[in-house]
Amino acid sequence: MNREDLLRPSACFLSMLALLLVALCLCYVHAIYALSQDSKRETLRMGTVSVLGSADLAINNAARYIRHVSLTDVSTPFQDCPGGLDYFPGAISVNPPDFMGYVTRFEEVEP
């Protein structure tokens, strides 16, 4: 390939496309690497969840009834099921799990 070929508009375009693809691939590799690095904290995470008894994220604690979306407690106003209806704006919204056919009640599952 001579110098003129390299300077054609098509060559510039394809190079740009290749660069963008490489950038996306780098993002993907970064995601895999970050996940593998984070896996080193897995033991710590499992240990913490096991001691706390809950894996709920501590990002919504402005009201106690949105702190644990997967568990109800004695002070929760809506105690129908885990992930009960949330009316506090801190979490925007949390849907009742029965929404769209999702059932939280215990049901026997055929093996």
Binding site: A55, V69, S70, L71, P82, G83, A91, I92, S93, V94, N95, P97, F99, Y102, T104, F106
Partner: peptide
């Protein structure tokens, strides 16, 4: 009593954040 199994809790997280 109410019995909640682990897989249900996992699905709860999925539902909650998918909804958001």
């Amino acid at each position: 009593i109410r019995v909640v199994i682990k897989s249900q809790l996992g699905r709860t997280y999925d539902t909650v954040y998918s909804w958001k």
